Amino acid sequence: MKTSNAFSFSFFFLLALSALFTGAEFIYDSDGDILNNGGAYYILPPGFGGEAIKGAAIERSPSCQLAVVAEISYDKGWAANIRTPFPVKYITNDYPLNISFANLPSNDCTKTGDWVVIDLIGSEGEPIMAGKFEELKHAVSGYFYIKPYGSTRFYKLAFCYSTASCGYVTLMNTHTTSNRLLTVSLDRSKEPLVFKFVKATSSSGKVASGISMVV
């Protein structure tokens, strides 16, 4: 999640968060190539078919907000840029990360694709929204981390708060549509979102033209 200057972390804090995890390992895409810092990738289920990651508009008076969701889809969803603040070429499992949608289809919710975690007391998890950090109410500062999941090229996503507590990204049913919200949960009994990275190439990197609606 890209934070504002007011909530940016110091270099030493980043190192402290990184120190929570030991044994740095490179992160690989589905082709076996190491993830490039700032590269664009689709976040897809480990197998064939299933849910693709994209945005969905949630109606909020007087406007809407864009939630990050997993949706049953025949396409690859929306590509995401994966970046670390460190001046490195490749991504490892111990680098703090900002994630943002590489491109946004035309919409009235936001012009910024940054993934932002929202603190909602009493929810089943903290939802991930897309938008500008400063404009989203209850936005929390922190960074994402990519962690291996039991097999080469399969991963799960962690989010570490400024308090240094960390949770995994999970999926929560919306009860109204087939879309499932991406949320951050500190409950380790919940199954994390498991995925693989697929390069967003020039021929396959276009995002869908529409936005799904979650009421």
Rank of each mutant, 00 (worst) to 15 (best):
112 T>Q: 12
99 I>G: 02
114 D>R: 09
116 V>Q: 06
97 L>A: 02
105 P>M: 01
103 N>F: 13
84 T>Y: 00
120 L>F: 07
89 K>F: 09
101 F>Y: 15
117 V>R: 03
103 N>W: 11
86 F>W: 04
112 T>N: 15
117 V>G: 09
78 W>P: 01
123 S>L: 14
104 L>C: 08
85 P>M: 06
99 I>N: 04
85 P>D: 00
83 R>F: 03
106 S>D: 12
112 T>V: 15
93 N>S: 13
101 F>E: 12
117 V>F: 03
80 A>E: 09
85 P>G: 04
110 T>V: 08
110 T>E: 05
121 I>M: 05
91 I>V: 06
80 A>H: 06
120 L>M: 12
107 N>I: 02
113 G>F: 02
87 P>T: 05
104 L>Y: 05
95 Y>M: 02
81 N>D: 07
100 S>T: 09
121 I>F: 10
111 K>H: 14
82 I>G: 05
126 E>D: 15
85 P>W: 01
89 K>R: 15
79 A>T: 12
124 E>K: 15
98 N>H: 09
92 T>N: 06
112 T>C: 13
82 I>Q: 02
116 V>H: 06
80 A>Y: 03
100 S>I: 01
78 W>Q: 13
87 P>F: 00
121 I>V: 10
91 I>T: 00
94 D>Y: 00
118 I>P: 04
111 K>W: 14
85 P>T: 00
114 D>L: 02
96 P>V: 03
96 P>I: 01
77 G>L: 04
91 I>Q: 00
122 G>W: 06
83 R>Q: 11
81 N>K: 08
93 N>K: 08
98 N>C: 08
112 T>F: 13
124 E>S: 15
96 P>H: 09
108 D>N: 13
109 C>F: 07
81 N>G: 11
77 G>T: 11
115 W>V: 02
88 V>A: 10
87 P>I: 04
122 G>Q: 01
123 S>G: 09
116 V>A: 00
85 P>I: 05
82 I>D: 03
120 L>R: 14
112 T>M: 12
106 S>Q: 12
91 I>A: 03
100 S>Y: 12
87 P>N: 09
98 N>V: 03
92 T>V: 07
123 S>C: 13
